[in-house]
Design a protein around this nucleic acid. Sequence first.
DNA 1: CGACACTTTGAAGACGATCAACGCCGGTGG
DNA 2: CCACCGGCGTTGATCGTCTTCAAAGTGTCG
Lengths: 260, 260
Amino acid sequence: MLPIIAPDNVRFMPLFAGLGEHDRDMLLKSGRQRQLPRGHLLFAHTDPVTHFYLIMRGTVQLFRATPDGHEKTIAVATSGQTLCEDEVMDACRGHRTNAVAVEDSTVLEFPVAWLKETAKTHSTFALNLLSLISNRAHLAEVEAEHQATMSAAQLVACFMQRLCVLYDFSPKGFDLPYSKTLIASRLGMELETFSRTLVKLRDHGITIQGNRVVITDLARVAEYVCSACSISGECTTHQAMEKKVSEIASSKSSTSSKPI
Amino acid sequence: MLPIIAPDNVRFMPLFAGLGEHDRDMLLKSGRQRQLPRGHLLFAHTDPVTHFYLIMRGTVQLFRATPDGHEKTIAVATSGQTLCEDEVMDACRGHRTNAVAVEDSTVLEFPVAWLKETAKTHSTFALNLLSLISNRAHLAEVEAEHQATMSAAQLVACFMQRLCVLYDFSPKGFDLPYSKTLIASRLGMELETFSRTLVKLRDHGITIQGNRVVITDLARVAEYVCSACSISGECTTHQAMEKKVSEIASSKSSTSSKPI
DNA sequence: CGACACTTTGAAGACGATCAACGCCGGTGG
DNA sequence: CCACCGGCGTTGATCGTCTTCAAAGTGTCG
């Protein structure tokens, strides 16, 4: 039995910030929950854009098929993230990607008219939406630059840091949240290249064995990755990593060295 | 002596569509005109974001300097285009690029608060802004994909088509609107690669000599470029090119073959 | 004429894609 | 219980493309 109202990870999204509980929950009521079993398509490339989506649970891959039979992954979205806000607002004819669940997922869907209407009548929501889309655009831009200026190994190292921050994993060790094939596609490289790259990263402060990732030397990672990035000082990801590490260090010292 | 009100290319921007002449001209009055001689910086990377800009005349290059001393051009904006709308709405700390005039330019600048306030109080404007930013984000995404999937030569060919559409040049022959160095940087390739590429394009329906570009065989260009692009059928640029060519053909026949 | 910015051309090298083979594992069916 | 299979990942060898470094050509402007 599913809850009528949305779970907290949706209600506390930045998109609904400053809206007041009542307004927010009213808005969320317009959404329809939809179960999406692993492997099922949410929508396909060129399908008409009919809804705006909130991911409540699970993981959705956005990808396009290139004429030569390859698949390029545009994004991998997980719970608490939105889909199609840009396609809705841009009034484009059809979906620009395919969307498929890479694990059993639940999405909340809203008709396109709802999104436009809400943006029109709730100025706070409109500003939140502007902020969300602008931020997305910025991330896309940074990624494009990374693709252009960083080597495959640097891209992977950068990605591992982001994983760690986004999923709140411990740098001391975590498991990849999805397959290497998907990650490689997400990073715009071939699986073989990705695989080879993992070995090389050992020399740069990251050890990967099977699905297990350990960040062994954050300073080395920073030197290797962030030095290649024109964003450098602004790199929020690496800043977050350093915070993580220092937190771990301090908590360890407070439990006086040896746990267990 | 400069006009107090904005010229038509600004007043008829999609951003102000549906606003009513009075509202629009009122809004535009809040802008301050600023002359920007060739080579001058409008703002620098990491500077605080203080304004939103409309380009009234001229051309502005947005670029970032990579740690290894290279410059990556993010965008080249000309009259009728906006700058920084995303940076303003994303509430980011500092500018994410440098902006420099590549020719004498005039911009209309608005304080960041003006943009946010206008979006809050004019829902039509907010929707236009959402649409603009979404569209930009989409273009960036498509470009990133192009960079990843197309060869240097295909990128250049694609770029020439876009030039032709954006500036309303004739495919029968036009001059590059800015330097090859800037174009190469814009396309994310080295000047040498760009230069070599131009020669090869002769085999694919585009002839370049000096600054002169002639699209000799549009069908060949389409086959060469669009076949590599997953957007394929949706490629509005190439559609626009075909329209251009057919218009020229029909006007030529209506003036009965030989002008001059 | 000479200085300088811009562009072209050549040769070498680095990097990632591609093709091919193999190892590993979980499931299915005899 | 074992044989077979398919999905997934690794590893090796080769190849094409783009970058890099170096040098020379073109144009403009004082």
